[in-house]
Design a protein around this nucleic acid. Structure first.
Lengths: 211, 211
DNA sequence: GAGTGCCTTGGTCAAGTGGCCAAGGCGCCT
DNA sequence: AGGCGCCTTGGCCACTTGACCAAGGCACTC
């Protein structure tokens, strides 16, 4: 609304603080868990006085909601060039999964916070639907990736892309959870490789290329 | 030690109370989440005065540990008679997975508590290894099931049973987590069915039966 | 330069939290 | 019967938590 005025610095300040508090809370949660992310700890992390919190957020629950809404996407853009229709389908799928995985592995605490936050929010009547929305979002993203994989690697699928996406999202979450428990990267990667093999069984190459 | 005396009622009382408190804490956690399971809430649920808590447990952390140690097994005994070597391998696998799943679905809060508790405990330096142990335990159980499935349904596996077990445990956890988010049983069952098809691709029938 | 409205702050509050303890009670053994 | 030792209890403590608020300050507009 009032953004149309010349220099909305004031408003920006408030939004900026919200952003800072969100980032700070994420940092605290990654480091010490969701339970340690008290309003005070968050403000301290952000270098603000305690009073600032309830000026930016009506309540702590509002922060939780904002935090889950600004979900952490994982970016796979870098991996596409590595895929090619000549390669083994399983190899292409594996590359894609492991590209995702290396990002998970690089920031384990982020995953932990996601589980933490998810299971916490599932208990709150007003925020219950958020994980569902987040799930649907990652499902859409996964479906997109699967379609693109079909193009880039020259594959068709023997089942609905949607079904496949569900299985992939689910499996990736499962592997992440297991890995958080055992912390054995080799095991996680082996599971993903095995899964890639299984998924490859659901694919066929598109029309044979004339050589 | 003194259990060898005639009637160890006293000691039993103490252990009994521990058991009661554990059960009560699980009930509270299922109903209202781990955060709501305060020492007082637990004692109230168990119908005990607050002081009883710290007589039975040195600290709250000790209760967490005991709770995760007494992990909730899922019993699949009922399903074995339904499997047969004549049936389609995929059908047998599917039956087994769905038998597990129906138990998960019957008690969603238990799963939620498991995630809750797991991600909480992963943050505690002294309890960190517990989820890993729990994971290994369910892995062993799964491996046992897979071996038995091989026998009962007359299957051999194209990959190591261990690897397969990892994938199964991981996938089941993943499906549970996804389902907790979206709460669509049909989707969960579809994922499991799809997964069963994939796993079936990794199996072969044992020596052909003479008909 | 005064005024207006957003921003900023430290202090305060009531409600809870985990943990502790001293007093008492009950049952068992001698 | 008497005494000993394990239970049991309610109350207490220091501390933390989320939330609120009144006082002040800054920047921008007229």
């Amino acid at each position: 609304m009032s953004d149309r005025k010349k220099a909305p610095r004031k408003q920006i300040r408030a939004d900026e603080r919200r952003r800072q508090l969100l980032a700070a809370s994420l940092r605290v949660m990654k480091r010490e868990g969701i339970a340690a992310a008290t309003t005070r700890a968050i403000c301290a992390e952000a270098g603000m006085p305690h009073g600032a919190f309830h000026y930016c957020f009506r309540s702590k629950r509002e922060l939780y909601a904002a935090l889950l809404a600004s979900d952490i996407e994982i970016d796979l853009d870098a991996v596409w060039p590595e895929l090619s229709p000549e390669a083994d389908p399983q190899e292409n799928i594996r590359k894609l999964l492991l590209a995702y995985w290396s990002q998970v592995e690089a920031d384990p605490e982020a995953q932990l916070v996601l589980f933490d936050l998810g299971s916490f929010v599932l208990r709150d009547p007003e925020l219950q639907e958020l994980p569902g929305q987040e799930y649907r979002a990652s499902l859409d993203r996964a479906t997109g990736y699967i379609t693109r994989l079909g193009d880039e690697a020259g594959l068709t699928y023997l089942c609905e892309e949607h079904t496949l996406a569900e299985l992939v999202v689910t499996t990736l979450n499962g592997v992440a959870w297991s890995w958080l428990a055992h912390r054995d990267s080799a095991v996680a990667r082996a599971s993903l490789t095995q899964f890639a093999e299984l998924v490859a069984g659901l694919t066929r190459r598109k029309a044979a290329r004339p050589v």
